[in-house]
Design a protein around this nucleic acid. Structure first.
Lengths: 157, 157
DNA sequence: AGGGATGGTTGCAAATCTAAACCCACCCGC
DNA sequence: GCGGGTGGGTTTAGATTTGCAACCATCCCT
């Protein structure tokens, strides 16, 4: 495991320590899609079996997935997302949208749309207090001044 | 490089191929924070110099960052995010929020807030057509039926 | 001429990944 | 009551990637 210099101040760091592995996010994608069984995931991703076993048990240790038996003899189970795992949905949606925007060579891949008007969804920073979307220029960081995603910078040079 | 079985239908896959490396997302975080120079990033992350050089040039190849000279003799430059790179902001914010929610052991780490009211930001699915937020239960997938993040699934088992 | 800052490249040992073989419990058909 | 297939792994050996340290190059300063 990578020992990082500042494991303290950044949630992105901790998040990536937990799920930032190349395969892990793809495994989570499959779980979101409803692909839940070892051999299904393995076939879908083409991941080596030992790595899949390893990643799944790490995810279980993290409380992101849990084993759920679906039959007794022989004991068989599926991997389901926990609430914590399902909370990754916005992150995966955001990554997917980025890929949609920049890598759609040819046919558009899967899209997420608003079912009432079939419009493609964006992810918008939202202020629950003002109950309104927040423009990037009004995003600021709170406690650890300086150690923050400065999304407000506009210079593209 | 990992040769995947279905490079075709999933933007998450393509996105991760481009920026899904363990270090790459941390490098991007630093760039968002305004840490733009080779040795600054290197000192901040503790990444090996050869890997940093490699990852930065990959990011440049992908068009996510670009080299911007800040002096001529000796030629020195910084790495700046392009529009494509800045478009990753929602993804990084989402990952950060997840870490905030599940790994804040003790003091709250950096938060992103609305500068006008200091309220912590959420990421909300947003319909640009209705110009309103979209409830998860109204999220649907569009073309490749079945191959989708089913964010609406409620079964936690 | 010597020293320091910046931005790398090179070489080698250590960790990680892949592929393929193997294991085990069970079920099914015969 | 044996052969084959399925599901979910573990083991082992070989190829790749990483991490670390040392080295190189350019310029500036004194």
């Amino acid at each position: 495991m990578v020992e990082t210099h500042q494991p303290d101040d950044c949630s992105i760091q901790r998040t990536l320590d937990a799920i930032g592995d190349r395969w892990t996010l793809l495994i989570l994608r499959d779980l979101f899609r409803g692909v839940r069984r070892f051999s299904m995931i393995q076939a879908d991703l083409g991941i080596a079996r030992n790595l899949l076993a390893d990643r799944l048990s790490s995810l279980a240790d993290e409380g992101v997935v849990k084993k759920v038996p679906y039959q007794d003899r022989p004991p068989r189970h599926e991997y389901h997302l926990t609430a914590k795992g399902r909370a990754l949905s916005p992150a995966l949606v955001a990554l997917m949208r980025w890929g949609d925007d920049y890598y759609t060579d040819g046919g558009a891949p899967t899209e997420l749309v608003h079912d009432q008007c079939q419009t493609r969804l964006e992810l918008q920073p939202w202020c629950t207090s003002c109950n309104s979307p927040v423009d990037p220029t009004h995003i600021r960081s709170a406690p650890g001044a300086g150690r923050v995603l400065r999304t407000t910078e506009t210079e593209d040079v």
